[in-house]
């Protein structure tokens, strides 16, 4: 890999940390009530904060400026096409992980989405399945492990990859191998698609990151942990929201 490839690869991985900002921000309750229980999951806070600072720098000086430029020159319809394309490829992981969680209906619906979006949706550029009434069921292997009852383990801020837990980190390899882009032999094509995915994703989050307030590290950590809990339990959150009373 030459320098540019390395940079592209690193950039590609950084996006997951950013995407949690937005996804967490949209679903997370204010964090004060059970911040204590969440900080119990972060015994490595000192190390994590150091890595977070590095990631944040990477985003501030490289990824975010690139994403801004991309957003400025790319029509919205292209951005959503790119987003749909990668989301469609993600259905393969959704099928596998839904099956592993014995969610047969969700696996079949993910399969239908893949079939119809890949054909009528012109190789996934258009999401025709959603208006057709077939809902998306996003699952990854970290969620599958959680569904099987494996605890999250300590919170981890991964260099470049962003927020995770010990369990979710273990799940990354499984999902990585199910992504068709990662199976492409040609380095330029594979890395190019990886960069496009990340930059496109980052660009889509430019607006929502304004929701972040207070200690950025804590905000992201708590949002991430709550979001994962929410996803693993398919919305049936286990937290008790009345701990203040």
């Amino acid at each position: 890999m030459n320098y540019l490839s390395k940079l592209a690869f690193a950039t590609a991985l950084t996006v997951s940390s950013v995407s949690v900002w937005a996804e967490g921000a949209s679903s997370a309750e204010p964090v004060n009530a059970h911040a204590q229980s969440l900080s119990n999951k972060d015994p490595l806070e000192g190390l994590n904060r150091a890595i977070f600072k590095f990631n944040d720098g990477l985003d501030t000086y490289i990824l975010k400026p690139v994403a801004k430029g991309y957003h400025a020159v790319t029509p919205d319809i292209v951005e959503s096409g790119v987003s749909n394309f990668f989301s469609n490829l993600g259905e393969i992981s959704n099928i596998a992980n839904n099956l592993l969680q014995f969610k047969i209906d969700a696996a079949l619906q993910s399969f239908s989405r893949l079939v119809f979006n890949s054909t009528f949706g012109l190789a996934g550029l258009i999401d025709v399945a959603t208006p057709m009434g077939i809902p998306e069921h996003e699952e990854d292997f970290g969620q599958t492990l959680g569904y099987w009852g494996l605890g999250s383990g300590p919170y981890l801020m991964l260099p470049v990859l962003g927020p995770s837990t010990l369990r979710d980190t273990a799940g990354l390899a499984f999902d990585y191998n199910l992504n068709p882009v990662n199976q492409i032999d040609d380095d330029k094509t594979r890395i190019g698609l990886g960069v496009l995915k990340v930059v496109n994703k980052r660009a889509s989050l430019l607006d929502s990151e304004r929701l972040i307030e207070g200690d950025k590290y804590l905000f992201i950590r708590n949002a991430y942990l709550q979001r994962r809990d929410y996803l693993i339990h398919d919305g049936n959150v286990t937290d008790q929201f009345d701990v203040d009373f």
């Binding site: 399969f111 079939v115 119809f116 057709m132």
Partner: peptide, 14 residues
């Protein structure tokens, strides 16, 4: 095969 009823007498399949 997978078949999707779109309502309105229309359907698609693969």
């Amino acid at each position: 095969g997978v078949y999707q009823n779109l309502g309105g007498g229309a359907d698609v399949y693969a």
